[in-house]
Amino acid sequence: MTGMTGMAGVAGVAGDGTPRVRLIDARMAGLADLADLRAYARAVSEEMGGGRVSRSYCFPLAVVACHEDAVGVDIERIEPCDEGFLESIMTPAERSGRVAWQARDHDPGRAGAVDTDSDQDRAAISLWSSKEALAKALGDALDYDPRRLDSPAAWRDGRSGPWRAARLEVDPMHIVWVCWRAQP
């Protein structure tokens, strides 16, 4: 089981209790299928301590986040997306560019990278994942239509009121977003 340390530097604010996040790799944990992975992840989250828990799966990976207050996590594999998909999950503000969600999404090392198909896919999946993580942190994810929820990618310094958001790098093919409510 891989542990993931170092939330510091992502949100950049000292003193906020950041959630504990663990990444589970089914291959390394010897788990055969999704059902086993779910059970294992549940056990891990119980072991990680009390408070609120959020889990997300993308076989063979799973992510578990624990926090004293509301928390939401989402992991996605970068896969090809239809052209219309990105449009269909953006708010009008994001579509028109009023909300700058993409600038923060680029890796610093890839500044100036050409906007290829895979960049588009990555951007779409990242946008969707950020909204999914936020929706899970806010409560029932189903209440939140991505077309009406601005992505936390646009937040200044990953903050909005009491909410925090961070994107974590797992490997080149996966994206993980974590959103949580900071303690006052």
Binding site: V99, L138, D143, Y144, D150, P152, W155, S160, G161
Partner: peptide, 8 residues
């Protein structure tokens, strides 16, 4: 009823 929608 109102849903919370964090914003910038």
């Amino acid at each position: 009823p109102a849903l919370e929608l964090p914003r910038v």
